[in-house]
Amino acid sequence: MSIYRPKTTVEQWRILQAVVDFGGYAHAAEQLNKSQSSLNHAVAKLQQVLGVQLLEVRGRKAYLTDIGEVMLRRSRQLTQTVTELEQLADNLHFGWEPEVRLAVEMVCNRSPLLPIFADFNRESRGSRLIIDDTVLTGTLEQIVEQSADVVITHHLPKGVLGEPFAEFRMELVCHPQHELAKLPQPIKQSDLLNHLQVVIRDTASKPSETSGWLKAEQRWTVSHFDEALRLIKSGLGFCWLPTYMSEESVTRGELTRLTIDGSSHRSGLLYLVLPKGEKTGPCAKLLADKLLESRSSNLSPEVLAGSLS
């Protein structure tokens, strides 16, 4: 098997890009701190080995040919990849992680996290972010086994510390035409026994799907709240849903809230945990710091004051 040997160099493509970006050989030479003749030679050599004309000079300015337009566009992908590769090597040399794994409990509203992710992306030095949706003991498993770098959870395992990060609220909902919606509210838990409950699958390797189960005789298990929402809106059963998912549908009359005698909703705190403790890498710490900087918009003033005291 023969090995392909490139005819061109990355430096030649960078010089071509500079000539185009800075409007000619003279300005490009100033920016690159090279002689104009060396740039002319590099581009001429590039065109010679490729056998195509990339630039044509009119007056004192160089213009891209049609072929040059295509080649220049592809060359930018090449030089960007090389830059990222070299940056990655530098990052790894100084202990910067190539990837960070964030485990997020599904009851957490993701919308407020998007600007944080965008900010993190600008400073992550090319590290990849892997986001895992977790449920119930699946979240605890990520903490105990230290399989994630950063975890947002509603429950802290014994002996594990976490920073209050956000509040969550869940409500019991069904379709407005469902039999449960026609009963006088609040209903009794026994009223639920003969109706279908939709629950979210525990993501642990050895799941324990007991939290949130209301002892209904019929139970369907789905992997995500999005699927549960579709089923409930179609008229199938009832389900505990985070208010950030159910609120709009309730307002539009597509869902109705159910209240059980002694329980109108469920709420609590979400905590940010670094499972690896002092072994947490710098990139994961960067993400955690940015998440914590945003928590003033996720927590009530009372809870925030308590977490900072």
Rank of each mutant, 00 (worst) to 15 (best):
G24H: 06
F225C: 07
F168L: 02
S38R: 15
S297I: 03
G306V: 11
K276T: 06
G23M: 05
H224G: 05
A204I: 00
T83D: 11
A228S: 07
S234E: 08
H41R: 15
L78K: 14
R14W: 06
F117N: 00
S249W: 12
N40A: 15
I130G: 01
G212A: 03
K45S: 14
A148S: 05
L236C: 04
E217R: 10
S124D: 05
I143S: 04
V70L: 14
P112S: 01
Q77K: 12
N298I: 00
V135K: 01
D133M: 00
T81G: 08
Q48D: 13
A103G: 08
G237A: 02
P115C: 01
G235V: 05
P112N: 05
T79I: 15
S296E: 11
Q189M: 15
Y63I: 09
L78P: 05
C239T: 09
T280Y: 03
H175F: 03
E97A: 02
T134G: 07
V43A: 11
L102I: 02
E217C: 09
D149M: 00
S37K: 14
E86L: 12
V144A: 07
E145C: 12
T153E: 01
R128L: 04
E99I: 01
S111F: 09
E84Y: 10
E302N: 13
S124R: 06
L88F: 06
A166E: 03
W96N: 00
S263A: 15
M245W: 11
N109V: 08
M106N: 06
S264C: 13
V144Y: 05
L214A: 10
P6H: 15
E69A: 14
R230N: 08
K45I: 15
L46G: 06
R125C: 07
E30Y: 10
L272S: 02
E84S: 06
T243I: 13
F238R: 02
G253N: 05
Q197I: 06
P207Y: 03
C283T: 03
L113M: 05
V19E: 06
A204E: 04
L16A: 14
G235Y: 06
K61L: 08
Q31D: 09
D133F: 00
T259C: 14
V57C: 11
L50M: 13
I200E: 02
A228M: 07
S205I: 04
P275D: 07
Q36F: 12
H155R: 09
I131L: 03
V151L: 00
S124G: 01
P176T: 01
V151R: 01
I143F: 03
T203P: 02
V104I: 09
Q31G: 06
V82Q: 10
F22E: 10
L156T: 04
G59C: 03
R58L: 10
V82K: 11
I130C: 03
P275M: 04
H224N: 06
K290C: 03
L269E: 07
W13I: 09
D21R: 12
H175T: 03
A166L: 01
R230H: 09
L172I: 13
